[in-house]
């Protein structure tokens, strides 16, 4: 027994901070999340992107033990979320999409309330974030603007120095200045410790800045999961000019999205390779081919459009 225990501890310390295995959730007949498998290594930041209803929030809610898991497993820091939630919650921080909390409390009361549940609460972290965000602890929650509420939410989620931070579209509907402050707060936390972060977002610029890896969800399924830099280097937008009156004959299997307009054939491919381009030119009646890099925002749109186009 003791060896098994030793092994569990070993995997817990070295294994990924977050592990999803075949995670599935159905609502009625439709799958909100289907067979989702991915891992977030310790100390890295994963940006979870996808259009509305892609299953980002459902995934995060299952991770937080707020939704039951229909099939598959989710583990945080090596612990199964359906069995160890109270222990896991001591070691993670969570910022929900809607920052709703006790409106009648003062910030100081809300801090005191939250603080009492954590063994590792650090007043210094809390105070420095209060200062950074310029929050007045005597203010009541109901007097706070949305931006201030989001900052309070972050402060409450990180002051117990969590090993994992989970943010569910934390910055939606915030003005650019508040976003900047919020990201600054998150970065400070990430820099202070080797904190693992999972955040879902619509703002791809923020994902590009904050995330090591990106996971793209569509219709509850994982489309892409890779390092952001790798994705940006490997994916290309190809523009080919077709000869008069002909249509493309061969389409690379790596195509994410394509469009033909007059003589212009646009394709987004991932990954792009010289071999692919050679074959493209050899197999198709094209005059010339031009290759450009493509930003995360466009890449995301192409993935979504490509999916919608195919039945």
């Amino acid at each position: 027994m003791s060896t098994i225990k030793g092994e569990t501890i070993a995997t817990e310390a070295n294994g990924p901070a977050i592990e999803l295995e075949g995670l599935t959730k159905h609502y009625g007949g439709t799958a909100a999340v289907e067979n989702l498998t991915l891992a977030v290594p310790r100390g890295t930041t994963l940006g979870l992107i996808g259009p509305n209803g892609a299953g980002k929030s459902t995934t995060i809610k299952m991770l937080m033990g707020m939704l039951t898991i229909d099939a598959g497993r989710a583990r945080i820091l090596g612990l199964d979320v359906s069995e160890n939630m109270p222990a896991i919650k001591q070691r993670i921080g969570y910022v929900p999409e809607l920052h709703q909390t006790y409106r009648w409390m003062r910030i100081s009361e809300l801090i005191g309330f939250t603080r009492s549940f954590y063994k590792t609460w650090n007043d210094d972290v809390c105070d420095s974030l209060l200062d950074l965000f310029g929050l007045d602890r005597r203010k009541k929650v109901k007097q706070l603007s949305k931006g201030m509420l989001t900052k309070v939410s972050l402060l409450l989620a990180v002051s117990h120095e969590p090993e994992v931070l989970i943010l569910d579209e934390p910055m939606s509907g915030l003005d650019p200045l508040v976003r900047e402050e919020f990201l600054d707060g998150v970065l400070r936390v990430v820099c202070e410790r080797q904190c693992t972060v999972l955040f879902s977002s619509h703002a791809l610029g923020d994902v590009q800045r904050m995330a090591d890896n990106v996971a793209m969800l569509y219709d509850g399924k994982l489309l892409v999961h890779c390092p952001v830099d790798e994705l940006l280097s490997s994916a290309k937008r190809v523009r080919a000019v077709l000869r008069d009156g002909v249509l493309p004959r061969w389409q690379p299997p790596e195509t994410i999205w394509q469009q033909v307009q007059r003589r212009e054939w646009l394709l987004t491919v991932n990954p792009c390779s010289p071999a692919l381009l050679d074959q493209l030119q050899a197999e198709n009646p094209v005059e010339h081919v031009e290759v450009n890099s493509v930003g995360l925002e466009d890449l995301f749109k192409d993935y979504v459009k490509g999916r919608r186009g195919t039945p």
């Binding site: 937080m64 707020m66 109270p86 929900p96 809607l98």
Partner: peptide, 8 residues
């Protein structure tokens, strides 16, 4: 939701 995100 806030209450449920806390450890108790």
């Amino acid at each position: 939701e806030f209450l449920f995100s806390l450890p108790p």
